[in-house]
Design a protein around this nucleic acid. Structure first.
Length: 431
RNA sequence: UCCGGUGUAGCUCAAUCGGCAGAGCGGGUGGCUGUUAACCACUAGGUUGUAGGUUCAAGUCCUACCACCGGAGCCA
């Protein structure tokens, strides 16, 4: 009896008989020959069926099968230069598992609305499949990086009691007799966790009810957020740089086929080596003013401004020391430049924008109290957070890495909605 | 929220000055032993986003609405 295997393993079974289970990705026939492109989730392989070998009845049945019908095929794996992937199967016996209905996504072009309405099926097509596998690789290598560097996973809650940062619109939901808000960031909880464990990170979904309608925004997106006790801004940047370089390397090493499927320019990713350039806000403004003279000093950067900055470099650039007013209340001010925050944004190359935002946190109780007052935030909701500055407050820092923006950058895709399996945007809650 | 654009067959799109509603893919039927988005022949398939209006005549012009796309803002 033939051994069951998967398409990515067929190289181990050259000239041997195996059984593959999967779905018909595409097929074409030529009289007595039928070419099945078989998909099993691990790859694609062509199975060649010859009418006299298979038998009239089964051959006709297979010839009539619609795209995405489920089948099981047994045959010999042979090396063949004509086949994509280098191998093909000479089918000997075949079995239909399920005859699909007429499949809506054909090998031709489709519009984005149609594809997004069929996202549950679109994930089967090779490009989307490659993107999600690279997403998996990115997440896996982030976790590996933290494991290797002494971090403890401490996940943050999704339901939160109040508008945490006060800078963004949150989703509100009923929580029994009161209201709860979906988290916009795990950071404040990570600060508590860092005081308990030293080096921590969380990985989970975050939610923003902003009516943003751009290629860089989702209402539900995933962030990896490390936080480290006894850490200053420079050490925080070292960490961010180490992690991003590690992740890029890991994707290059393990997902070469997927990058190829996406026609990603690999040389752009191979250039991502430490050290990353580090510039201050003031220097970034000078770069922007070369191309956009209307930029007002003191403003936060818009998407086109970020692109201008990133175009000066072949690797991610870290911009620090933004004006304190444009940053969140918990950012520590630079003692040497009191109007600047000890913060860092990492801008990806090729115009992919901000993938990391972070910095050193304010650790002085009185300054924090003052800031909460200035930002008119509900002091009661921050009682626990302020406790962290009462019981052994230490310099600490961290950052958040947006998974979808990182996936988009590494995959070279145009829109973050393809970087998450089931995107949630301003205008989409289905499927 | 603002600016711009698009709604025509299951899908992607055409339709000139307002004058017979069309193609490719997908579906169906037949043919082919090396196809890669196969090819060849035949075939079925339409409330032109919705509601009004102008006109002998509207896919095409006008008004309103709806949906989506792109960008900005907001934001990460």
């Amino acid at each position: 009896m033939a051994v069951k295997t998967t398409i990515q393993e067929v190289g181990k079974y050259q000239d041997k008989e195996v059984t593959l289970s999967g779905w018909i990705y595409n097929k074409t026939n030529k009289g007595k020959l039928l070419f099945l492109m078989l998909r099993d989730g691990t790859g694609l392989i062509q199975a060649v069926m010859f009418r006299p070998e298979i038998g009239e009845e089964l051959f006709d049945e297979f010839t009539a099968l619609p795209q995405e019908s489920a089948v099981q095929v047994t045959g010999k794996i042979v090396e063949d230069k004509r086949a994509k992937g280098g191998y093909e199967m000479q089918a000997k016996s075949v079995e239909v598992v399920h005859v699909a209905e007429e499949y809506p996504i054909t090998p031709k072009e489709h519009g984005i609305e149609f594809l997004m309405d069929h996202r549950h099926l679109w994930l089967r097509s090779s490009k989307q499949h490659a993107i999600i596998r690279i997403r998996h690789q990115i997440i896996q290598s982030c976790r590996q990086f933290f494991d290797q560097n002494g971090f403890t996973l401490v996940d943050a809650p999704i339901f939160t009691p109040a508008a945490c940062e006060g800078t963004t619109t949150l989703f509100e939901t009923d929580y029994f007799d009161s209201k709860a808000y979906l988290t916009q960031s795990g950071q404040l909880y990570m600060e508590a966790a860092a005081m308990a464990f030293g080096k921590v990170y969380c990985f989970g979904p975050t939610f923003r009810a902003e009516k943003s309608k751009t290629r860089r925004h989702l209402t539900e997106f995933w962030m990896i957020e490390p936080e480290v006790a006894f850490c200053d801004l420079d050490q925080d940047m070292d960490l961010a740089e180490d992690m991003v370089a590690f992740v890029v390397q890991s994707v290059l090493e393990n997902r070469h086929n997927e990058l190829e499927t996406l026609e990603r320019d690999i040389s752009k990713l191979e250039a991502i080596k430490k050290p990353f350039p580090r510039i201050k806000y003031d220097q970034a403004v000078e770069l922007i003013k070369e191309s956009n003279p209307d930029f007002l000093y003191g403003d936060d950067f818009g998407a086109p401004d970020e692109t201008i900055i990133s175009e000066h470099y072949d690797r991610p650039v870290m911009v620090t020391h933004y004006p304190a007013e444009v940053k969140a209340f918990y950012m520590k001010k630079d003692p040497n430049e009191p109007h600047k925050a000890l913060c860092v944004d990492m801008l990806a190359p090729e115009g992919y924008g901000e993938i990391i935002g972070g910095g050193q946190r304010e650790d002085d109780l009185n300054i924090l109290l003052q800031k909460i007052k200035e930002h008119q935030l509900p002091k009661e909701a921050f009682r626990w957070y302020l406790d962290l500055r009462r019981y052994g407050s230490v310099p600490h820092a961290g950052f958040g890495l947006g998974i979808e923006r990182t996936v988009s950058w590494l995959c070279g895709i145009h829109h973050v909605r393809e970087a998450i399996p089931f995107p949630r945007t301003l205008l989409r809650l289905y499927p």
